[in-house]
Amino acid sequence: MDIYEPLQQVSMWGDSFKVEGGLNSIASPMLLVNTTTSMENKSEYIPHEPSEPSEVNQETTNKDVSKVLRRLAQNREAARKSRLRKKAYVQQLETSRLKLMQLELEIGRARKQLQGMCTGNALDTTFMGSPETINPVGIVAFEIEYGNWVDENHRRNEELRNVFQANASEVQLGQVVQNVLSHYTDLFRLKAEAAKSDVLYLISGVWKPSVERLFLWIGGARPSQLLNLIVPQLDPLTEQQLASIKKLHLSSQQAEDALSQGLEKLQQSLVQDMAVDPFSATNHGFQMAIAITKFEALESFVSQADHLRRETLIYMSRILSTHQAARGLIALGEYFHRLRTLGSRWTSRPCDSVISPRITP
């Protein structure tokens, strides 16, 4: 490249500028105006010189800037107040929504209790919670969200079944499997939030149907029982898979036993705290405070039990192939669906089935 090329380009730009009406074409009319302009015109032009008006313009500009800054400050303050009002309004709406959910829940409980009286099964009429107690707002929200979770879980299991039966690709089937696994993780998150509101409510299982409470272990199902349920439904397993599943089953049982023993020791400690001499001058309030502190330790048991359930599902999915994992999750979803169906039929059984026959001599 020629080092002079930039200079040549500048020269070309200058030539083109002249062609388009350069300095000569611009200067000629200016000279004509100056020669034909009288002194009066010059005197009229003097006030427009930039010496004195510049101060006035500067002062006007300062005033304009002050007005703009003041308006910006006012706009920021108005926006801040608007955000505060919006936040308060949203909080009010959320509180009203939770109160409405609580009222709907209590109406549903009263309806179930009335149905239980009609069917002769008034002792087992509640699907979630006890009708004579009003749960805190956090528990009400959990019950609503858990009901939504059950419906969504059934939908995802049906989707997994359809994709599996349609012989979908490995990638598509794996995506649906991960969606089902992540949905179980959502349940553990919901339970963790509910445990912060009332861990005794969660660990008692009153949020589940009565039939499911029969198999309850620290707020859920035993992972070892889930493995016993899933494994027979799988395709023929390799020796390596069988060895890994056996190891997983053993570790799950050991963890379950450790948690069960810890919970039993906590229960024994609470019994000892409550078993005091009723005629002694012991400060019962202090003992109650200690007992409540021990109840709060139950949240750790629920957290560890759910962690064990989640890790068992995840590790099991890693041992199996995608098709095997899909088949196992379908079997697990069908199991819980049948438990809920059985619980529904149990609570709605006819009166004749609960009335004991009269024995005539």
Rank of each mutant, 00 (worst) to 15 (best):
K294V: 05
K87C: 03
L234Q: 04
S353H: 07
D235Q: 14
Q91T: 10
G262C: 02
F336G: 01
I3Q: 09
Q254T: 05
I203C: 01
Y4G: 05
L342V: 09
R83I: 05
L214W: 04
K99C: 05
I314F: 07
S348V: 01
R309P: 04
T360W: 07
P350D: 00
L308W: 01
Y315K: 12
G328K: 13
L84H: 08
V206K: 15
A78F: 06
R85P: 01
W217I: 03
D2I: 05
P47T: 10
S300F: 03
W149T: 06
E158F: 07
S252Y: 08
R189H: 13
L226E: 15
E145S: 11
V56E: 09
M117T: 07
V211L: 12
Q233K: 13
G108V: 07
P53L: 00
D198Q: 03
K63W: 09
L248D: 02
L339E: 05
E256T: 00
K99L: 15
Q240L: 03
T185N: 10
M288F: 13
S244H: 13
M1T: 14
M1Q: 15
H154N: 11
S260F: 11
T95P: 01
M288G: 09
L227Q: 11
S28V: 10
R76Q: 15
G328T: 06
E170H: 07
A79M: 11
D273E: 08
L242S: 11
R111F: 11
G22Y: 02
Q254S: 04
T60S: 13
V171Q: 14
L266R: 06
F164N: 01
V10T: 10
L173Q: 11
S82K: 15
I139V: 09
Q9H: 09
L114P: 01
L103E: 05
R345H: 02
L105M: 11
L266E: 04
Q233I: 00
S54M: 10
K247M: 12
F127H: 09
L313F: 07
Q115W: 13
Q91R: 14
A79F: 12
F286W: 08
E104L: 09
D257I: 01
L342Y: 03
D352E: 10
A305D: 04
T125N: 03
G174M: 14
A192M: 05
I355S: 07
I292H: 10
I319F: 07
D257W: 07
E158V: 01
G262V: 01
G205W: 02
D198L: 03
M128C: 06
Q272H: 02
A27L: 15
M128R: 13
F215A: 09
I139W: 01
L103K: 15
V65Q: 14
V10E: 04
V177S: 08
A289Q: 10
V176S: 10
P29F: 08
S348P: 02
L308R: 12
E145I: 08
R76L: 15
